[in-house]
Write a protein that binds this DNA or RNA. Structure first.
Length: 488
RNA sequence: GCCGACGUAGCUCAGUUGGCUAGAGCGCCUGCCUGUGGAGCAGGAUGUCGCUGGUUCGAGUCCAGCCGUCGGUACCA
């Protein structure tokens, strides 16, 4: 058998699992602070409940992992947590509305994997179903801000950017002109081009909207083929820069002109602005950003994304922006697909894996891979009963403790303790038994001091500066004192 | 999905125009040191040269296909 692993899937070692778990605890804490309740749904769904199905081909859309079950029905791994939520709400009409749930779990997508992009990854979603109030959308922005704060990201490193699909539609409408509606296919191509702004720049978008664009590798992307006047309108829209949310709304209002849908969108943004102001989330933390489009599928109103604003330096030394970790918006038609009844909903999703990668890049996560802080060594294997007693005592007082169950000598045991991330090693031999004491070694202090060992190892061994003796009766107190040096 | 680059010890990489038993640094392991990891010294193992086939007297080196990684592009619910 050859050991191999599916492309885009990964093994996640202790340090990352532990770091991610700590993050999730913080994230749940924020979601629950706002009153969202947890929900779990299956990994597998009928493919038609996932939203994507190619009826003419009688098989699922590429992009989802799918197979036929024993009854010859197409089932697939969920690719997000929103479609299952819609299905759940449709199946449980008695739920009190608004229904506000959060869900944390893996999703699967057949996509080209890249750095920080996988085919299996964790999402942390929170949504409000059953209200069309902009209060819910404004709250989503607040939750995003609070979550990042709880994860130790300072306000200057994170910003929520919002926009409204109705505004975009308004622009498209006024672009088409009276009696000449924009074909839906064309409209979605325009949105797709706008979505590429941060990658290709304003000139790139201009080219994409017109004849097409050739990138540096010589690849040519076919353009949308708009008329120059139409392109200018889109560019004017994208170029809106304003100091405050309300100023942006004024600009947008001017641009959408007489479009009813556009005006409605601006009004929604104004309501969100008002709610945010009342709750104390100012113009620096949540900005209205006309260039935000987001996954073109089912969003019907406000869309938002949470963006890390710092650059990370990759291994080549190249700076690159980290980009969006939170994404969401309003999807008023999704539940209706199941029930036929109007059921407005809005919410947002956090990509924990991406965020973890970002926090690692700025050194905001400690990379410990151990769960025990103390190793009880076995100097004299005949004294194992004593060692077990010591380990039990420490565990009983809440100190995570590992008893060395290997077979090697004391030197190797210290190396193991250090390599496996322990903070303290306990040594007891005949001497300690006689004097009713324990020897406690601060492994990290040892590492520090060892930088100055020099050539005189003999002296080092005699002095053992990182080690001290404590009465056996004060074992726990002494150990805890050392642990406190490293605040965990 | 499409285009391109790359693929040699665990890691970072050398490896001449095809030519003897494939190298360095770091890391790892062992000993000096059977009550002490981190210093020093001495030693040791690193490996299907991505895989498969082809050209050749001979392939890490040349050719083809495949796999993988990276970059660009498309898609991204």
């Amino acid at each position: 058998m050859v050991s191999r692993r599916l492309k885009g899937f990964r093994d996640i070692a202790a340090a990352d699992v532990l770091a991610r778990d700590r993050m999730i605890v913080a994230i749940r804490g924020v979601y629950e602070r706002y009153g969202y309740v947890p929900l779990e749904t299956p990994a597998l769904e009928y493919v038609d409940c996932l939203g994507k199905f190619l009826p003419e081909a009688d098989q699922p859309d590429g992009g989802i992992f799918a197979f036929k079950n024993e009854d010859d029905e197409w089932v697939g791994l969920r690719y997000d947590l929103t479609a299952p939520l819609s299905r759940y709400v449709a199946m449980n009409p008695e739920l009190p509305k608004p229904f506000r749930r959060y869900q944390i779990g893996p999703v699967w997508r057949v996509e080209k994997p890249g750095p920080g992009r996988f085919r299996e990854f964790q999402q942390c979603d929170f949504d409000s179903v059953g209200t069309g109030s902009m209060l819910a959308d404004a709250e989503a922005c607040m939750v995003m801000c609070d979550t990042m704060t709880a994860l130790g990201v300072s306000a200057k490193d994170f910003v929520v950017r919002i926009n409204d699909r109705k505004v975009l539609n308004g622009v498209l409408e006024s672009m088409a002109g009276p009696g000449e509606p924009l074909p839906p296919e064309l409209a979605s191509n325009v949105l797709r081009s706008i979505d590429k702004l941060d990658r290709v720049g304003l000139d790139g978008v201009k080219a994409l909207l017109g004849p097409g664009r050739k990138d540096e590798s010589g690849d040519f992307t076919k353009g949308v083929g708009l008329r120059p006047a139409q392109i200018d309108l889109v560019l004017a829209y994208l170029s809106i820069k304003a100091s405050t949310r309300s100023n942006v709304c004024d600009e947008l209002e001017r641009l959408v002109g007489s479009s009813a849908i556009g005006r409605e969108g601006v009004d929604e943004l104004r309501q969100i602005d008002a709610a945010l102001n009342a709750a104390g989330y100012d113009d620096r933390r949540v900005v209205i950003e006309p260039t935000v489009v987001r996954g073109l599928a089912y969003y019907t109103g406000p869309v938002f994304e949470g963006v890390l604003t710092f650059d990370i330096v990759d291994e080549e030394g190249t700076k690159r922006p980290f980009g969006s970790v939170f994404g969401g918006g309003r999807y008023d038609d999704l539940v209706e697909r199941f029930t036929g009844q109007k059921m407005p909903a809005t919410g947002s999703s956090l990509g924990v894996d991406r965020l973890l990668a970002a926090l690692k890049a700025i050194g905001k996560v400690d990379a410990t891979s151990s769960t025990a802080w103390v190793l009880v060594t076995r100097l004299d294997k005949n004294l194992t009963a004593h060692y077990q007693a010591i380990a039990s005592e420490l565990r009983g007082s809440g100190v995570n403790t590992e008893l060395y169950v290997g077979t090697q000598g004391i030197g190797k045991q210290f190396k193991y303790a250090g390599d496996s991330g322990k903070i303290v090693a306990i040594v007891v031999g005949e001497d300690e038994i006689k004097s009713e004491s324990v020897s406690i070694k601060d492994l990290r202090l040892g590492v520090e001091l060892s930088k100055e060992i020099g050539a005189d190892r003999k002296k080092w061994l005699e002095q053992q500066p990182a080690q001290f003796s404590a009465p056996r009766s004060q074992l726990t107190e002494a150990v805890k004192k050392v642990l406190l040096r490293y605040t965990r």
